[in-house]
Amino acid sequence: MGNRQACTNPRKSHIAFPNIHIRELFGSIEAELADVDDYLQKSVSQANYLIKDGFNYLLQAGGKRIRPAFTLFASHYGSKTSCIPAASTMELVHMVSLIHDDVIDASDLRRGKATLSNLYGNNYAIHLGDYLFAKALAVIDSYQNTALSGKLAYTSREMCRGEIEQISNELCLQQNIKRYLYRVNRKTSVLITLCFETGALVSGANQEVVNTLGRFGHYLGMAFQIADDMLNYTADEQTLGKPVGNDLQQGVVTLPLIYFLKYGKTELCQDVKRILKKETVTTDEVVYINQAIRVSKAIEYSQELVNRYAIKALQQVDKLPDNKTTEVFRQIALLYYQEK
């Protein structure tokens, strides 16, 4: 999400971050993020060597640790300490969703490296995912906070429903934007929301702040996923960490395509529909569809929607106490805002 322009909305006075990457905003919590990695490593220390091997491979495969960072930042609004286990749980849940996604999509690569299912097999990947999710719940249970455990369980259910919705809508070209947004919420936004709420809850922040951070997380998550879906049509393989056009080849219909099919030029739309109805979509056809979508207004419209969510997120930031963390949140939301 680099190369963003400075925004010229009423909050302009707060901005000083063009050309910045989200990870660069995590400077103040670098030490805590290192603790999260240590905690994650320790969380499987009692497991058998097969689990340790696969899990260490995943840890070393990278990842921006965005979700634990959100939890750690959110914990700054309370007074209690030790949010590391909760933050680690958020990364575990995210990892599980990626491991299972790779099996579902039969992906060979993730972030440019072989997926676990590719290396160790599908059964291994599924069992490791189930193992890690159960561990995540055990960690959350140690906080003895019924609201927190309930939220994690609810989130996992919503994430599954989002995935099921996506599968049942595969290659369904008659989707509307509302339906797509429901799916985005379940697929991505609920977990981001949980990250913020968890940090605030664990640290003992007041309920108003918990709710505001939850809403901020929701809007940010929506902006994040829509922007990610746009990347499938605008970025190269190196940026994506997976083959270009993967979504199209998997039959996943996202906002740029939905918009294009509804408002694009009739003859182009019919051509794209014809291609997508075929058994397989070739690389040349992916390039052709990407080009057709880029010349339509689909990308601009998607960015407009991202902007709207970013502004909503910023409105929540304005309700938070004025401090350094609030400023970081403001900058994170602005990362997704892009002027026309």
Binding site: S149, G150, A153, R157, M159, I164
Partner: peptide, 15 residues
């Protein structure tokens, strides 16, 4: 996905 959904239902029910 079905397995995942049922597992999540288990955890939700417990809570």
């Amino acid at each position: 996905l079905s397995g995942d959904l049922i597992y999540s239902r288990i955890y939700s029910n417990i809570c």
